[in-house]
Simulated assay, not measured.
Amino acid sequence: MTDFTTSGENVSGASAESRNDDLKTKTEDLAKETKDVAKAKASEFKDKADREARSRTETAGERLERVSRSLDRSADDLENDEEWAADALHTAAGQLSNFAQSIKGKSLSSMAGDARTLARKDPGLFYGACAAAGLALGRFMTATAPKPQTAEPEADSAPTPAIKPETPKANGDNYGVR
């Protein structure tokens, strides 16, 4: 009987070990499959974001070029009256046009690489540009935010008192004022 129990334990131990190996293999397969699906979704998301960024940078570049042409026309109008202002506007228009050309159709990774390069070459300019972009974004956000409806009276109108002020009594009492 002892041999049977010992051999039974060995058989059940081997069976448990086999089940553990099966579970381990299934877990590893599931982990690999999950990792592959996550990689595919991440790649799909990156491609979609890149297409969207290219589309938006193309649109932004076109808009900036229109602004640049408008600055050039304004500069042309000023050339006879204010030559210094016309020169400044022509310079700004040229810079804006160059910037518009540089961002047209760029991908997110390309723009991020350009930002890293600028930060390494000229950190002061990079931080200044970040600050200016932050201020511009803040002003844009506050300008486009919906105005909350308030029940407060407008500043132009005088507030209506809740209690009418007392008038001096007929007996000439001025409440201590002489």
Score class of each variant (00 low, 15 high):
residue 1 M to C: 04
residue 2 T to V: 13
residue 2 T to L: 15
residue 3 D to Y: 11
residue 4 F to I: 12
residue 8 G to S: 11
residue 9 E to P: 02
residue 10 N to T: 09
residue 10 N to W: 02
residue 10 N to Q: 15
residue 11 V to H: 11
residue 13 G to T: 12
residue 14 A to G: 10
residue 15 S to N: 08
residue 15 S to I: 15
residue 15 S to P: 00
residue 16 A to D: 14
residue 17 E to G: 15
residue 19 R to G: 02
residue 20 N to G: 14
residue 21 D to H: 14
residue 22 D to P: 00
residue 23 L to C: 07
residue 25 T to Q: 13
residue 25 T to A: 10
residue 26 K to N: 09
residue 26 K to W: 02
residue 27 T to I: 06
residue 28 E to K: 07
residue 28 E to I: 12
residue 29 D to W: 03
residue 29 D to Y: 03
residue 30 L to H: 10
residue 30 L to W: 12
residue 31 A to K: 12
residue 31 A to Y: 06
residue 32 K to P: 01
residue 32 K to S: 13
residue 34 T to Q: 13
residue 39 K to L: 15
residue 40 A to C: 01
residue 41 K to R: 06
residue 41 K to Q: 13
residue 45 F to N: 12
residue 45 F to A: 14
residue 46 K to I: 15
residue 46 K to T: 15
residue 46 K to Y: 07
residue 47 D to N: 15
residue 47 D to P: 00
residue 49 A to G: 09
residue 50 D to W: 08
residue 53 A to H: 03
residue 54 R to H: 05
residue 54 R to A: 04
residue 55 S to P: 01
residue 58 E to K: 10
residue 59 T to D: 11
residue 61 G to E: 01
residue 62 E to S: 07
residue 63 R to I: 05
residue 64 L to W: 06
residue 65 E to K: 07
residue 65 E to C: 00
residue 66 R to A: 10
residue 68 S to Q: 00
residue 70 S to P: 00
residue 71 L to V: 00
residue 72 D to K: 11
residue 78 L to H: 05
residue 78 L to S: 06
residue 78 L to Y: 03
residue 79 E to W: 00
residue 80 N to A: 11
residue 81 D to G: 01
residue 83 E to C: 02
residue 88 A to I: 00
residue 89 L to S: 00
residue 91 T to L: 09
residue 93 A to S: 11
residue 93 A to E: 01
residue 94 G to D: 03
residue 95 Q to N: 09
residue 96 L to I: 02
residue 99 F to A: 15
residue 100 A to R: 03
residue 100 A to M: 02
residue 101 Q to G: 14
residue 101 Q to R: 12
residue 105 G to V: 07
residue 105 G to S: 08
residue 105 G to Q: 09
residue 105 G to M: 06
residue 108 L to M: 07
residue 110 S to N: 14
residue 110 S to E: 15
residue 113 G to H: 08
residue 114 D to F: 06
residue 115 A to R: 04
residue 116 R to E: 04
residue 117 T to F: 07
residue 118 L to D: 02
residue 119 A to H: 09
residue 119 A to V: 01
residue 121 K to I: 04
residue 123 P to D: 13
residue 124 G to R: 09
residue 126 F to M: 04
residue 129 A to K: 01
residue 130 C to K: 14
residue 132 A to C: 01
residue 135 L to D: 09
residue 136 A to D: 11
residue 138 G to K: 09
residue 139 R to G: 12
residue 140 F to C: 08
residue 140 F to D: 07
residue 141 M to V: 08
residue 141 M to Q: 13
residue 146 P to N: 09
residue 148 P to I: 05
residue 148 P to R: 13
residue 148 P to F: 10
residue 150 T to W: 02
residue 154 E to F: 13
residue 156 D to W: 11
residue 156 D to S: 14
residue 158 A to C: 04
residue 158 A to G: 07
residue 158 A to P: 00
residue 160 T to L: 15
residue 164 K to Y: 08
residue 165 P to D: 10
residue 166 E to V: 11
residue 166 E to D: 10
residue 167 T to K: 12
residue 167 T to Y: 05
residue 168 P to K: 14
residue 171 N to F: 01
residue 171 N to M: 07
residue 171 N to E: 15
residue 172 G to Q: 10
residue 174 N to R: 14
residue 175 Y to P: 00
residue 176 G to V: 01
residue 177 V to D: 08
residue 178 R to G: 08
residue 178 R to L: 09
residue 178 R to D: 11
